[in-house]
Write a protein that binds this DNA or RNA. Structure first.
Lengths: 350, 350
DNA sequence: CTGTTAGCGCCTTCAG
DNA sequence: CTGAAGGCGCTAACAG
């Protein structure tokens, strides 16, 4: 029992294969009667064209690939949601390539995608110049989301500006001893957004005459935050390069009995869903929207239409994790602290 | 500048295409010298075989599809992580099909996947009998994760038992007026795990002589929880069919000024990452592990090897969201309540 | 409008 | 061990 092919349909309908192909692809016109007969034959035989054959013949797979660090960054998943929706609406498939660096790199070695995908979206990973060249040689259409490259359409936010906004918010609250917590990506030096956020942040602090102290600038999550808190002269506020790190910092604060925001203000970046639950103040960027927009652009670029990158807007979202600067060890502060940390410790465990 | 094909390599190496194909597929033996020459030609030309051509020729795509409600259920993403890892290690691609029901159904209409995938994993969505038949007719290998079907290898947990465990935990804490919050999936009647969790839960309560009151059994998240709390005789504990719903319930409690766990104990199901941050007591099941195991089974099944489903273990994870039953309106309870809810309200906003 | 035919790039007998 | 040739299922000229 062979699978039914276009030839079977043609025979059943009493026409040539080309005609069947034509009604399948709604290409040049087919007489209404013929068309109906073909359609009936298709239904009768429950025929379904072979994607592989079509891909081989046309050179297009109707599939787009997405490379990204899916499972280490919640923000990526939210972006993917937008991609998935858009791509599905356009009738395209989605191939996922998660990335330990090796896999990502393989994906960028464009020839590896021959006959697999028509377009490639890279989220939070910018290819090197060499990879870009390789991609272009292979004529793979590429769009970057949350990553920039001079010769590739890129969509994302102004991370420097975001850093500056965070600095402003904290400064406006009266904080002066402010720390920075970087994303802890030892193996991915090209994840550049954190670096840019930090640049803007530093600039913002410096402009206000409160430059970032070197010992207040760390990289990592919970442990780094704990070290910060253990300092003789600990910071009263911290800007984390991502919500994930920010939440880890809040966790560390709870564990150390440091009340947030009374003795430590915490601000993050991204505004992932988790930030809502955690009550985290953060610099919000469009996540799902960036994915959707990126997908639209990719789809358009794949038709040959020239597309240009876009900057998306940022917005400060104030929740409860930042508050005005307070002098240490005020009586009231202490009482609140005890109740609160006791409370959170009861609920939150790692 | 045409893309380089197997013929180019053959010419470059001074051999026939068949030989190139042989070294590519490590199939029958090739003399060492010839083999080396071919390999060199491949490198020299930076040749990369066309996946489409290979798929058409062999009938196998080296791609597996995953259908699942990716973006509405955090648990699915964690499962996917295991799938991704396993599948990548085996050198397979991953195609994602998110599902508004329409897309899922299309995927199940097996013929639609001809020439696209070699195997299909369905997470948290069980196909109907008819779909199973269709799948079998099309000879698509299928494995179910978190879903059961008599004639398909299925892997998951004993949801009924999980429900029973939740009941036991709450009863052991002294609660008697206990509510159930269902997942709010109006459009997906086949998402059966919630139903089974509830069955086990009801059975557990009934066995202890504290049967589930009809008015304490609702479906939905925050709003349903709020209704529960507004009852004249509100429950002192609630079992939610998933962590997501449980966290929504905690949120509703905070908003209503009801302290958790002092006046309301909340227990969830799944143990997603978020549960840790939320300090949620929950019935934990292997998430990433289930994905990995499912992928392994699928890969094996695709070779023709018969595989059998597996039940994974459940475990009660106590965090801070459940506590002993307390009589209402005790003085101490009230004080704690005020501080706490004031506090959480400050931090958590929706 | 519609049928015929030549590939798309690779795998796989089948001879040599 | 290796080369030649047919075919996987479909699309896309090119004739009619």
């Amino acid at each position: 029992m062979r699978r039914t092919t276009i030839a079977d349909v043609a025979a059943e309908a009493g026409v040539g294969v080309a005609t069947v192909s034509r009604v399948l692809n709604a290409s040049s016109s087919v007489r209404e009667g013929t068309r109906r007969r073909v359609l009936e034959a298709i239904v009768a035989l429950d025929y379904q064209p072979s994607a592989a054959a079509r891909a081989l013949s046309t050179g297009r797979t109707h599939t787009i690939g997405v490379v990204a660090p899916f499972f280490t960054r919640p923000a990526v998943i939210e972006r993917l949601r937008g991609v998935s929706r858009t791509v599905a609406e356009a009738g395209y498939q989605l191939i996922l390539v998660d990335g330990e660096p090796a896999a990502r790199r393989r994906m960028f070695r464009a020839r590896a995608l021959h006959g697999r995908i028509d377009g490639l979206m890279s989220i939070s990973i910018a290819p090197t110049d060499e990879e870009v060249r390789s991609l272009r040689d292979a004529r793979v259409t590429v769009v970057l989301v949350d990553g920039w490259h001079g010769s590739l359409p890129s969509i994302g936010v102004d991370d420097r500006e975001g850093g500056r906004m965070a600095a402003e918010h904290l400064l406006a609250l009266g904080h002066r001893r402010i720390a920075f917590l970087d994303d802890c990506e030892q193996d991915e030096p090209r994840l550049a957004s954190s670096a840019r956020r930090r640049e803007g942040f530093e600039a913002g602090l410096a402009a206000a005459g409160a430059p970032l102290a070197p010992e207040l600038c760390r990289s990592g999550g919970r442990r780094a935050a704990a070290e910060l808190l253990a300092l003789a002269d600990p910071p009263t506020a911290v800007f984390a390069a991502s919500d994930t790190v920010a939440i880890a910092a809040m966790d560390a604060a709870d564990a150390a009995g440091v009340p947030v925001p009374d003795r430590l203000s915490v601000i993050g970046f991204d505004d992932v869903e988790l930030a809502t639950y955690a009550g985290l103040t953060t610099i919000a960027q469009p996540l799902e929207g960036s994915g959707a927009l990126g997908a639209e652009m990719l789809l358009r670029a794949m038709t040959g239409e020239p597309v240009e990158g876009r900057r998306l807007p940022l917005e400060l979202v104030e929740r409860g994790s930042t508050g005005p600067f307070r002098r240490r060890a005020s009586c009231e502060g202490n009482r609140t602290h005890d109740v609160k940390s006791e409370l959170r410790r009861r609920r939150v465990r790692t």
